[in-house]
Simulated scan of single mutants.
Amino acid sequence: MDEEQLARIAGLPKTELHLHFEGAAPPAFIRGLAAEKQVDLSRIFNEDGSYAYRDFTHFLSVYEAATGVLKTPEDFARLCRAVLEESAANGVVYSETFLSPDFCGGGDVSAWRDYLHAIREAAEAAERDLGVTLRGIVTCIRHFGPDKARAAALCAAETADDWLVGFGMAGDENRGRQRDFAYSFDMAREAGLQLTSHAGEWRGPSEVREAVEDLRVTRIGHGVRAIEDPATVEMLAERGVTLEVCPGSNVVLGVYPALADHPIDRLRRAGVKVTVSTDDPPFFHTTMRREYTGLAQRFGWDEEVFAEINNTAMDAAFCDAATRAAVKKRLEPS
Rank of each mutant, 00 (worst) to 15 (best):
E228Y: 08
R175C: 14
T232Q: 03
D108Q: 12
R298N: 13
L130W: 03
A151C: 06
R290K: 11
A52L: 15
H143Q: 11
W163F: 07
R142G: 05
Y292I: 08
T67S: 13
W163V: 02
D55S: 10
A52K: 14
G200H: 03
A82C: 01
A231N: 15
T242C: 14
R135M: 04
R150Y: 09
D280R: 01
R175F: 14
D162S: 09
G271Y: 03
F167C: 05
H117I: 06
V252F: 12
E291G: 01
A317K: 03
S197I: 13
E96V: 01
A258M: 11
T287W: 02
E74K: 14
R209D: 07
T287R: 02
P282E: 00
F29M: 09
L12Y: 01
R120W: 08
S61E: 15
E190N: 13
V212E: 10
A326E: 12
L243E: 04
H143T: 06
R135Q: 08
R54T: 15
R298H: 14
P263K: 09
H18T: 01
G145S: 05
V217W: 00
T232K: 02
E16V: 03
P333N: 02
R177W: 13
E64S: 14
E207V: 13
R31N: 10
L193Q: 12
F284V: 01
A258W: 11
V92Y: 00
Y94L: 07
T97C: 11
L215V: 14
R128G: 08
A321N: 02
L331T: 03
A28H: 14
V305P: 09
G176C: 04
L243W: 03
V255I: 14
E158G: 01
T97S: 11
Y94W: 04
V305Y: 07
M314S: 01
A89R: 09
G192K: 11
D315V: 10
W112H: 14
D214Q: 14
M235P: 06
G166L: 02
D2Y: 02
D279E: 08
P247G: 04
L215S: 12
V245H: 00
K148Y: 06
D40M: 11
T139G: 09
A123F: 15
A321K: 04
G204Y: 05
I227H: 11
D302V: 04
V327Y: 01
Y292T: 10
M1C: 11
D320G: 08
S42T: 13
L99P: 04
G106W: 10
A237G: 10
F56P: 02
Y183E: 15
T139Y: 06
F103Y: 15
D108F: 12
R203C: 15
P205S: 03
W301V: 11
H143M: 08
R216Y: 15
T242D: 07
L331K: 02
L243H: 00
A77E: 10
C104F: 07
G300V: 02
P281W: 00
A88H: 01
G11P: 06
V92W: 00
F283L: 10
D147F: 10
H262W: 05
E3C: 11
F98T: 09
T312G: 13
V62C: 09
A89K: 06
K328Q: 12
I227Q: 10
L116F: 10
C80D: 11
G105R: 05
L267I: 05
S334G: 14
A226V: 13
G176E: 05
R266P: 02
L84S: 05
E121H: 12
A316L: 05
D315Q: 10
G168H: 03
T57L: 15
R219P: 04
A191C: 06
A66K: 12
